[in-house]
Computed example of a mutant assay.
Amino acid sequence: MSAALIVLILIAVLAIVVVSMTVKIVPQARSGIVERFGKYRTTLSAGLNIVVPFIDKVRYVIDLREQVVSFPPQPVITEDNLVVSIDTVIYFQVTDPVAATYEIANYIQAIEQLTMTTLRNITGGMTLEHALTSRDQINSGLRGELDSATGKWGIRVNRVELKGIDPPPSIIDAMEQQMRAERNKRAAILTAEGERQSAILTAEGDKQSAILTAEGQRQAQILTAQADRQAQILRAQGEAQAIQTVFQAIHDGNPDQKLLSYQYLQMLPKIAEGDNATTWIIPAELTKALGTLGGTVGKIPVDGGGSKTRIDFDAPIEDDGAADTSATNEAVQEALDAAKAAENPATSAADVPSQEEPPPPPPGAPQG
């Protein structure tokens, strides 16, 4: 190989090296930190960049995208002296590549330690129950503390999330027992409340039933009394008319002494028909007594002028209680309405008459 060829090869290699050291390509959403003789010179943006070869050097390439870092669980002591394990997730973004490079040696480790200490400070002022129910409060407190502390590092903390808060197993068992006891308490309260409502409704139903039963008995007694009254009136009227009829028939027939003696003899066997009439004594003076009785009867005027009141045998019997028929029908209708209302007491509680103010009795009913 000739010397000229070797020289050309060396020049080509040197040219390639110089071009590679001069032209720098920075990917999208990244920044390059350029140092000249170990000192910061400039920041390269995304795209094609030119630097001085052998003098300038791209020391770091910083990722400007939002990054997610998950930290392992950390033991934290709560206000009630219980140790819980809390693991967190941090969402952050580099806003100043120069500060992130020269203000902090390892910003990932710094964020982790800062998160652990801040989490212990916040959770140490809370009880376990408060910490379990206040994740949003812990997240916002962590984010505020981390964002203010990492601002000088050129880092912005966008979001902090707690992945889990794990109490000790004994505390978990105690919490489960407490929850079961609370549920049993609520179930017992609901059961007692249901029984109370059931007893109230049952007593109310018994009360309404007793009221309706008493009202029905009252109406029935009123109707029975009215029926007995009408029956007694009708019987008395019938007996009166029967007596008047017999009295008129006797006077119209003009009976003599023989007829009266014959009627007397017919009544004697009926006197002896009693259960206690085991012995019947006929006096010897029976004929004389009959004669005397006949003589006495004979002295009665045969024609005494007839009956004072003439009875029309063909006239119908008057019913003085017809005026009370409408009142009786109204009372029956009220009793039927009360029975229907008892079948469905939920329709209207106002339809049932109260015990303090009973409804007025129907017309014609006995007072008191």
Rank of each mutant, 00 (worst) to 15 (best):
M1N: 08
A15R: 04
S20D: 03
K24A: 05
Q28F: 09
I33P: 03
R36K: 13
R36I: 10
Y60H: 15
R65C: 00
V69D: 10
L82S: 09
S85Q: 13
I90L: 15
T95P: 00
P97H: 02
P97S: 05
A99Q: 13
Y102K: 01
M116C: 05
M116V: 11
L119D: 08
N121I: 14
I122D: 05
E129P: 00
Q137M: 13
I155Y: 08
N158H: 13
P168T: 01
E176P: 00
Q177T: 02
R186M: 14
I189H: 04
I189D: 10
E193P: 02
Q197Y: 09
E204A: 06
E204V: 04
L212D: 05
Q219C: 07
I222C: 07
Q226H: 06
A231S: 12
A231K: 14
F247K: 01
A249F: 07
A249T: 14
I250P: 00
Q257C: 00
L268W: 06
L268E: 11
P269E: 10
N276D: 15
E285F: 06
L286K: 04
G298M: 01
D312L: 12
D319A: 04
A331S: 12
L336N: 04
N344W: 07
P359D: 14
P361Y: 01
P361G: 03
P363A: 15
A365K: 03
P366F: 04
